[in-house]
Design a protein around this nucleic acid. Sequence first.
DNA 1: TATTGTTATACTCTATAACTATA
DNA 2: TATAGTTATAGAGTATAACAATA
Lengths: 149, 149
Amino acid sequence: MGQDDVCAPGTARTALSTELTSAVNRLQRRLRAQRGDVEIGEGQIAVLMTLKHHGAMSPGALADHERVSAPAMTRAVNALAELGLVAKLEHPTDRRQVLVELSERGAAEVGTVRRRRDQWLAGQLRSLTTDERATLAAATELMTRIANG
Amino acid sequence: MGQDDVCAPGTARTALSTELTSAVNRLQRRLRAQRGDVEIGEGQIAVLMTLKHHGAMSPGALADHERVSAPAMTRAVNALAELGLVAKLEHPTDRRQVLVELSERGAAEVGTVRRRRDQWLAGQLRSLTTDERATLAAATELMTRIANG
DNA sequence: TATTGTTATACTCTATAACTATA
DNA sequence: TATAGTTATAGAGTATAACAATA
């Protein structure tokens, strides 16, 4: 039982905000449960991808970018440094700051780690129509805008 | 800094699965942070709404419906019972089972609690175009399908 | 004084495994 | 034996507050 029993969204007289919240919560829970033995957490993967796109950044800048607290970012960066995927460097002029940069191994492995994390969802998306994927792509942009707005 | 600095999704040569995962994670984090002093958690609100739609159910059926583990549902139901929003009843024929039903107060307050939780997101959605909201509504359905599939 | 990063601490949510009661 | 629910325990992820070093 259960999955056949779920209310189709839009059926009830429920607001979009409620349904969207519910969908986001459920999908995130499913993604976390489905994620196999990826050895590092979501937030840490996000840090690797950000560093790949933007180059070396300070922990504070990373925390702003990912919209998490500074302590949460300290922990994520330390975990990645212990795995040898990033390195913490002294800032050239401001000795309070730290620069976090991808290590060679981090740069080599970020793609692999990301693909392994996304494997299940990518499979689910393959069974959608082209139009449905386009809808999700557009919604992805909107959700990111809302999350960062 | 930070929010102006985020990569526009679809800009990079990144797979939809990656962008969707990232968007869902970020939006959920933002929704949690933005949620004011709603006195009960996400999962508990979901239980109240399910009971409102479906009537009394057993904890096991609720766990299946919400796709969480049985212990997680036990905790959610107990928390709601302590607040007087649900009642736990004996099953008429099977004494192993429990029936969870909305209390009068629970039925009266579920709408209020939900609206307070959704207040921020509803405001964000109001600033979108009609087309954009339609996109999100369609995507909500797709995400729910994927989460439950 | 203000800023950057870290440590200390605590809370929420979730899961698996072991247990109890009933069927 | 099998099922429904609970308890025990542990882990991930996050936050706020207090602190240290530097500007």
